[in-house]
Amino acid sequence: MEDRNLRCTQDEKIEIACCFCLDEDAKTVVDANVPVRMDQEYLLNEKGKLEIVKVWDCSKKTIGAKDVKTFIRANYPNDLVNIS
């Protein structure tokens, strides 16, 4: 990866991802106050870990709050998607 400086001409996005191991029976509060198992909600990556990804859009001269996005990288099975 090239040094990210003012003269960098490569990709204009920087991504940092962190993976976390969870206890098999651990429940996490995701929405309001409902505890869920991350594996049952298909919120784990292909290695069974919780992966949080932050992406910065560095295409502008300055980076503001709107230029940073946070995601969960998950391994959601395609056969559960109902397209009608």
Rank of each mutant, 00 (worst) to 15 (best):
M1Q: 04
M1L: 06
E2W: 00
E2T: 11
D3S: 09
R4Q: 08
N5R: 10
N5Q: 06
N5A: 08
R7T: 10
R7D: 10
C8A: 11
K13S: 08
K13G: 00
E15F: 03
A17L: 07
C19F: 02
C19L: 04
C19H: 04
F20A: 08
C21S: 14
L22M: 15
L22K: 09
D23E: 15
D23Y: 04
E24S: 14
A26M: 13
A26F: 01
A26I: 01
K27S: 09
T28R: 06
T28D: 01
T28K: 06
V29T: 14
V29Y: 03
D31V: 12
N33E: 15
V34G: 00
V34R: 14
V36Q: 09
V36K: 13
V36I: 15
R37C: 11
R37M: 14
M38A: 15
Q40Y: 06
Q40W: 03
E41V: 09
Y42P: 00
Y42G: 00
L43N: 07
L43Q: 09
L44S: 03
L44C: 05
N45Q: 06
E46L: 02
E46W: 02
K47Y: 08
G48N: 05
K49H: 11
K49E: 15
K49D: 09
K49A: 04
L50R: 03
L50Y: 11
E51C: 15
I52S: 03
K54I: 10
K54N: 05
K54F: 08
V55P: 01
W56I: 15
W56D: 00
C58K: 01
C58E: 04
C58A: 08
C58V: 03
C58F: 01
S59A: 03
K61P: 01
T62A: 02
I63V: 15
I63E: 02
I63S: 01
G64M: 02
A65T: 10
K66Q: 12
V68K: 09
K69A: 07
F71M: 13
F71N: 02
F71P: 03
R73L: 13
R73K: 15
A74L: 05
N75V: 00
Y76S: 01
Y76N: 03
P77R: 09
N78D: 10
D79C: 05
D79L: 05
L80C: 06
N82E: 10
N82W: 02
I83Q: 11
I83K: 15
S84M: 04
